[in-house]
C-alpha cells in the first residue's frame, strides 16, 4: 500500500491553477512583499519613482525580467553545472535586461532617456536574483513563472504607490498631467498659468531622501495592518 502511494506521488503533477498556484501570486503582494518584507529591490524603487510613468515602465520591465529569467532558469535547472551556477544566472538576467534596453531604445525612447542607468540596474535587482536562487532552481517552469509574476507585481505595486505620492506632492502631477497647483517655488516672480494655483510643490518630494520617508511610512502602515510582520526584519 505504501509503495503504491509513493509511486503515485512521483507521477508528474498536472498544470493547474488552484489554491497553491494562486498563493504564489498573492503572497508576494502582501505577506511576502519583496520590498517591504524581504528587503529586496530597493535601489530602483527609490530612483525611478519620481513620476508614475517611469515607475510603470520600470515595473513592467521588472515583471518581464523576473518571469523570463525564472522560466528560463527553471527550464535549464537540471542542465546548469553547479560550478558556474551564479555566472549562468547572471548571464540569463543580463541578456533579458539588454533585450529590455534595446526594446526601449527602439520603441520608447523618452522612457529610455529618463530611466537611463537604472535599466541596467535591473540586473542587480535583488528580487530577480533572489527568486532565481530561492525558487526557480528547485521548481518547474510553470510555477516559477507564477512566482516571478507575483513578485514582479508585488514590487510594481509598491513602486506605483511611492511614485503616486512623490509625483503628486512633489510636482502636483500624475502621469505628467498637472492636477493641482502651478506654483513652481523655484522661480521667483512666476506667473501662475493654471486653474488651481493654490498648491506649492513640495520640492523635497522629488529628491531621493523623500522616497526613503515614503517607504518608511508604507512599511509602518503595512506592518500595523498586518501584525504578523512586526520585527520580521
Amino acid at each position: 500500500m505504501a509503495e503504491t502511494q509513493v509511486l503515485v506521488k512521483k507521477v508528474a503533477t498536472p498544470i493547474s491553477f488552484g489554491k497553491k498556484e494562486r498563493a504564489l501570486i498573492t503572497d508576494p503582494l502582501n505577506d511576502n512583499n519583496p520590498i517591504t518584507v524581504q528587503v529586496l529591490g530597493i535601489c530602483s524603487a527609490l530612483a525611478v519613482t519620481t513620476g508614475m510613468k517611469n515607475a510603470a515602465v520600470m515595473a513592467v520591465a521588472v515583471v518581464f525580467v523576473c518571469v523570463g529569467s525564472n522560466v528560463i532558469t527553471s527550464a535549464l535547472r537540471k542542465a546548469i553545472p553547479s560550478q558556474v551556477r551564479m555566472i549562468v544566472q547572471l548571464v540569463i538576467i543580463a541578456t533579458l535586461v539588454t533585450v529590455v534596453e534595446l526594446t526601449l531604445k527602439a520603441y520608447a525612447f523618452e522612457s529610455y532617456k529618463q530611466l537611463s542607468v537604472f535599466i541596467g540596474l535591473i540586473i542587480t535587482n535583488c528580487i530577480v536574483m533572489g527568486r532565481l536562487e530561492a525558487f526557480a532552481m528547485a521548481n518547474r517552469p510553470y510555477e516559477s513563472a507564477l512566482d516571478g509574476l507575483g513578485n514582479g507585481i508585488g514590487y510594481g505595486i509598491i513602486l506605483l504607490i511611492v511614485a503616486f505620492f512623490r509625483e503628486l506632492l512633489g510636482k502636483g502631477e500624475l502621469f505628467g498631467m498637472k492636477l493641482i497647483g502651478a506654483g513652481d517655488i523655484y522661480a521667483i516672480n512666476t506667473e501662475t498659468s493654471d486653474i488651481f494655483g493654490w498648491y506649492v510643490s513640495n520640492g523635497l518630494m522629488v529628491q531621493f531622501p523623500s522616497a526613503m520617508f515614503v517607504i518608511a511610512v508604507l512599511i509602518w502602515a503595512h506592518r500595523a495592518w498586518n501584525p504578523k510582520l512586526v520585527d520580521i526584519s
Binding site: 517591504t36 528587503v39 529628491q207 531621493f208 531622501p209 523623500s210 522616497a211 526613503m212 520617508f213 517607504i215 518608511a216 512599511i219 509602518w220 502602515a221 503595512h222 506592518r223 500595523a224 501584525p227 512586526v230 520585527d231 520580521i232 526584519s233
Partner: peptide, 23 residues
C-alpha cells in the same frame, strides 16, 4: 520605537535623514 516601525522601517527613516544631511 513603535512596533510596526522597528527594524526595517526605522532603517529607512534613518537612511533618508542621512541622505538629507549629505545633500
Amino acid at each position: 520605537v513603535p512596533p510596526a516601525m522597528r527594524g526595517l522601517g526605522m532603517a529607512f527613516l534613518l537612511t533618508g535623514m542621512m541622505g538629507m544631511a549629505f545633500m
